[in-house]
Nucleic acid binder design. Structure first.
Lengths: 247, 247
DNA sequence: AAGTGGTCTAGACCACACC
DNA sequence: GTGTGGTCTAGACCACTTC
């Protein structure tokens, strides 16, 4: 099989060709591609060269690879749209889980771990003069898939015994509110993009390096004191935040 | 040199070790690492295995590779913070360039091309019953670096001769306003994450697969008719959008 | 010209999924 | 067990930067 695009490295020409063949419908959504070895024979290229093309298309979200099973055409990315438009509605910081379920999206939050771990960014935002933070890590399943890893940082001495009072069933915000009487409102949220590190990748069952939507935020207590800094890492192919100005 | 972390693939252990050595200050920010071959000898691994580790760290933004010159420790990512908090201030859709310069950030927009190219997403948002769109592609330099690739879609027949009236010096929105009297306001904007494809990578001088912050938006004319759909692809290591609720 | 990263091939072995 | 992807080595040649 001759490769059409005449210039550039072989792996790119293979990627372009695979892309076109998928676009033409040669393999339907969810269908299994030939093995890497077989594709290598088709293109007259080594398996590793084909592999490089497949890796690139995987990061772009066009393919999905399952170890031992095969390489598949990824279904069109279904992105959950989360509205962040109405400051009033979001003045009260609520848990991620509720953010989704209130939109009619099936979601469940799981507590991964609570550790005493300092983070320079968190410390800066919480305006702490000395160390001593708790990091609460949770994993959010959306539509049955692990999609969001959250790290919430709070000052340790403001929430003594927090780890023990956790039943794993309530959101971070609810626990802070109910056990410590801390009312929380958002100060700001931010949106960025980064790559999945090994931990993110393992937690969300995606290849390392996959696009991640980085969602940070700071919550204040009712006295206006910085209280909780959260850093969420969301699967880029599943999440989307929308800011509506008018209909 | 023995590798510390005892489990997992070699390339990950090398990546972890390099990360730690950078953290310890063995190489300062901007400093040049040993060549891939030399690192391979240090770790007793093949050059390609080292290379895999370097690729991962590059996507994470810790390293920066220059073909023919070497591998360098990337300076801490400087992210430009763009406020999207005040709907009133942004009611009038303005060009990207002005968004940045009004924040005191050096920015310059360059017209790449105008083509007649249909896009199903754009067509849906613009609510067009039939094909016939213009795609205006621009590249925004921020702080001297190419950081944002924008595609703006408008209905062709609403803006006849648009390509000819372009002097390349004004923003898309200004051209639409001044030449066609189209007042524009934002309807919504959205934030997502994806990977750089080959085109994005070439335009912004980043490796393919790098994290990209995807910023879409729809503008309406004063009659409330969908008029311009824009899709911006921003370097994930340079951009950050902030939504402020209160100080 | 020398050094560096970019690409490609060849072949091997391992880990996992499915039958 | 068989087939699939995941990792690793060996060695080659090319393209680019730097001198």
């Amino acid at each position: 099989m001759p490769l059409r695009s005449s210039s550039g490295p072989v792996y790119r020409r293979i990627a372009d060709d695979l892309r076109e063949r998928i676009g033409r419908g040669e393999w339907a959504s969810g269908a299994k591609l030939p093995s890497e070895t077989a594709l290598g024979e088709q293109y007259g290229a080594h398996r590793l060269t084909v592999r490089r093309a497949i890796e690139d298309l995987t990061r772009l979200g066009l393919l999905h690879v399952r170890h031992g099973a095969g390489t598949f055409v990824a279904p069109p990315a279904l992105r959950y749209e989360i509205s962040v438009d109405d400051p009033a509605r979001h003045a009260t910081a609520e848990g991620v889980e509720r953010t989704y379920t209130s939109l009619g999206i099936e979601a469940a939050e799981e507590l991964l771990r609570i550790t005493a771990e300092d983070d320079t960014e968190a410390r800066r935002h919480l305006e702490l003069r000395r160390a001593g933070m708790l990091r609460i890590e949770t994993l959010l399943y959306v539509g049955g898939e692990p999609c969001v890893v959250s790290s919430t940082y709070v000052e340790n001495r403001r929430f003594p015994g927090l780890a023990d009072r956790w039943d794993g069933q309530r959101s971070v915000y609810d626990v802070l509110r109910e056990n410590y009487g801390a009312g929380l409102v958002y100060a700001w949220r931010s949106f960025g993009a980064t790559a999945a590190d090994a931990d993110d990748a393992a937690a969300m069952a995606i290849p390392p390096g996959s696009p991640i939507l980085l969602r940070e935020g700071l919550s204040l207590d009712l006295d206006g004191r910085p209280t909780a800094y959260v850093r969420r890492r969301c699967r880029g192919d599943r999440m989307k935040f929308v800011l509506r100005y008018r209909d």
